[in-house]
């Protein structure tokens, strides 16, 4: 861990000894028993990582274009199958949750609506849900 970054003259928090350091990472993904804030933290982290994974998948799939028309057409057929469409909705959910929560983090993080951060999170998630329902319906109706 980057202990060198510690302010001068301070020791680092070595963490709880009986608990292995690896276990502390799990804390990112344990919003249970916690306040709403950790849900936002965990959701943002999970969706952020998910989106990065998707980005690489997406680039991988796009590279099929280099292979030729036939492989792309095969891919398109798969892409229109219901299981993949469900995945599309999951992706949309991730984008909406991450994007709107990201807006909240950016706003609150620069000192705006600090006192209403909780309501802001709820509002953003409601917005995301509405757009998800609209978007999800569109995905299946097309």
């Amino acid at each position: 861990m980057a202990v060198s970054n510690a302010p001068e003259g301070s020791r680092a928090y070595p963490g709880q000894q009986p608990r292995e350091p690896q276990k502390r990472v799990l804390r990112w993904f344990q919003p249970f028993n916690r306040s709403l804030g950790t849900w936002s933290f965990t959701l943002n982290r999970v969706t952020g990582i998910g989106l990065v994974v998707y980005l690489y998948l997406h680039l991988g799939v796009l590279s099929l274009l280099l292979v030729g028309e036939e492989s792309w057409d095969t891919f398109l057929a798969v892409a229109k199958s219901p299981p993949v469409l469900v995945m599309d909705v999951v992706l949309l959910a991730g984008l909406l949750i991450h994007g709107f929560n990201g807006l909240r983090v950016a706003l609150v993080g620069s000192g705006f609506m600090v006192k209403q951060q909780r309501q802001l999170f709820i509002g953003m998630m409601v917005l995301a849900l509405i757009l998800l329902v609209i978007g999800g319906t569109a995905v299946f109706l097309k």
């Binding site: 306040s35 933290f41 609150v108 600090v114």
Partner: peptide, 25 residues
């Protein structure tokens, strides 16, 4: 990362997260 757990957990109503945002500003 704006999780606001400190503010939620503080038994003394210090609102540390709010203070962090104040410092950022």
């Amino acid at each position: 990362h704006v999780a606001y757990e400190c503010t939620a957990a503080c038994p003394s109503n210090v609102d540390p997260a709010g203070k962090i945002m104040g410092l950022r500003r």
